[in-house]
Computed example of a mutant assay.
Amino acid sequence: MTTKSTLLALALIIVFAFAKNETAEYPKIEKGMIKMTIFYPNGEDVTFDMDYYINNHMAMAANLMGDDLKAMMIDKGLSGGAPDSPSPYVAVGYFYFESMEAFQNAMGPIGDKLRADVPNYTNIQPVIQFSEVQTAQ
């Protein structure tokens, strides 16, 4: 893979964006929002069913979180920074909320249900990070 094609692949990493982003019903991502990022590290013997993740797990999460969830996106890892290197993450999921309180309201009653579904699509132990959005779209 050439450097040019590697850069193109990196530019195309975001492959799925749910309709919850920038519609009349849901506001766009704005500075100050809280973003929960779920990283699925790549490695030896990892399994990940992207179809199930998109169509079942993330769809269920969006439905259960209701109006507290403002936007949601999924990245599918394609490659690392060096030519022909594997992606450091198989997938990365993003949930956007107005505040930590909104996240807690959304996740509190459903967290156990979502965690119980993880073995249905992966054997990876996800890594979670909370961030405050610093730039708006």
Rank of each mutant, 00 (worst) to 15 (best):
G93I: 11
E22I: 06
H57W: 06
M50T: 13
L78S: 03
E98F: 00
M72R: 05
D45H: 12
V46Y: 00
K28V: 05
Y40H: 10
G77C: 07
P41K: 13
I38Y: 01
K31G: 04
P83Y: 00
A24W: 05
D67P: 03
P41H: 07
A59Q: 08
Y53L: 15
D45N: 15
I38H: 01
A61E: 02
E101V: 09
F97P: 02
G66A: 10
G43N: 11
P88I: 11
D75E: 12
V92W: 01
G93A: 15
Y53H: 13
D49N: 15
D84A: 14
Y26S: 08
D84C: 08
Y89L: 12
T37K: 10
M73T: 12
V90Y: 02
M100L: 15
Y26F: 13
P86R: 07
T37E: 08
A24D: 13
M100P: 02
V46R: 15
G32W: 02
K20C: 05
D51M: 09
E22L: 08
K76H: 11
M73H: 06
A61I: 04
N56E: 14
E25G: 09
A71W: 02
A62C: 14
Y89H: 13
D84V: 07
A62E: 13
L69C: 12
L64P: 01
E22H: 08
A91Q: 06
Y40I: 08
F95Q: 01
E44Q: 11
A82M: 06
M36F: 01
I34T: 12
G93M: 07
